[in-house]
């Protein structure tokens, strides 16, 4: 089974390491992952207004491409995942969006949300399995205390994202355990980092990011991990770096022993 991989813009530029480590790891795990050809930007934020159609089209193109492959669209960036998954839900349940998007795109066959959008972490959980992952770890991160930072985009709205329990998620903690480290649960792990507001009102993002980092640190975390380049930017550049912030793929690569090749 092949996963059609959608990296998204930022993973090709400012968040190259998130992408590169992820690709090294899928190789180490023996997964068949192929990048989508000629992909376009997903739009970065899901347009919530019910009359937004054009802004969803590039996501539909991506989803439709994956349908033509094995129907499994693999995402890594939390924002891309959120946009693609929610647009896909619209194509399933919103007849108006489905009709107009299909009319516009003039596809050979109507697209009605057939593709399954799978986040990299979901792939690890559902297709690799924590026990298998554990078995492949060569450098267990023993004694490292890691706080999972979920943010908003992976979890909410949970009725659509269906990623994990929106208030008490465990997937990243399970991931941390599988690579041999110790998860630190802290109450701000699903709070917002300030998102796009940091462009215009950096003070807000600074407050939000520091609340998250302080909470992680106070609960004993040595580092927090994220799947989102924007969260990474806010936590790292807006926050006062009381704890280190890393992409989860980096520590995965470390655990699998493929970080430095």
């Amino acid at each position: 089974m092949r996963f059609s991989y959608y990296p998204g813009c930022t993973l090709k530029t400012k968040a190259k390491e998130l992408n590169n480590y992820a690709l090294k790891c899928v190789e180490a795990l023996g997964l068949d992952v192929k990048e989508i050809e000629e992909w376009q930007c997903c739009g970065a934020v899901y347009p919530q207004a019910r009359d937004e159609i054009a802004t969803k089209l590039s996501a539909v193109r991506t989803l439709n491409y994956a349908k033509g492959e094995d129907g499994k669209l693999l995402t890594l960036c939390s924002a891309c995942h959120n946009v693609l998954k929610r647009v896909n839900e619209d194509m399933i349940s919103d007849a108006n969006v489905r009709l107009k998007a299909n009319n516009y795109l003039q596809l050979e066959e109507e697209y009605a949300g057939e593709t399954e959008v799978i986040h990299y972490l979901e792939m690890l959980r559902d297709y690799v399995g924590w026990d298998n992952l554990k078995a492949k770890v060569v450098n267990p991160l023993k004694g490292v205390k890691i706080g999972a930072y979920y943010g908003c985009l992976l979890l909410r709205p949970s009725k659509v994202m269906a990623f994990d329990n929106p208030e008490n998620p465990t997937i990243i903690e399970d991931f941390i355990k599988a690579i041999g480290a110790t998860p630190v649960v802290y109450p701000y792990r699903n709070e917002c980092c300030g998102a796009y507001v940091s462009l215009d009102e950096p003070a807000i993002s600074k407050k939000k990011s520091n609340a998250i980092l302080d909470s992680a640190s106070a609960n004993g975390a040595d580092m927090v991990i994220t799947a989102c380049p924007l969260c990474m930017y806010n936590l790292k550049h807006m926050g006062d770096s009381v704890v280190d912030v890393k992409y989860f793929t980096e520590i995965l690569a470390e655990a699998l022993g493929v970080k430095e090749d």
């Binding site: 998204g8 970065a44 934020v45 462009l199 990474m232």
Partner: peptide
């Protein structure tokens, strides 16, 4: 260091 994602999302929102 600003990620593209931030510019695109802010433009989309604003």
């Amino acid at each position: 260091t600003i990620p593209q994602q931030l510019l695109v999302s802010a433009f989309r929102k604003y």
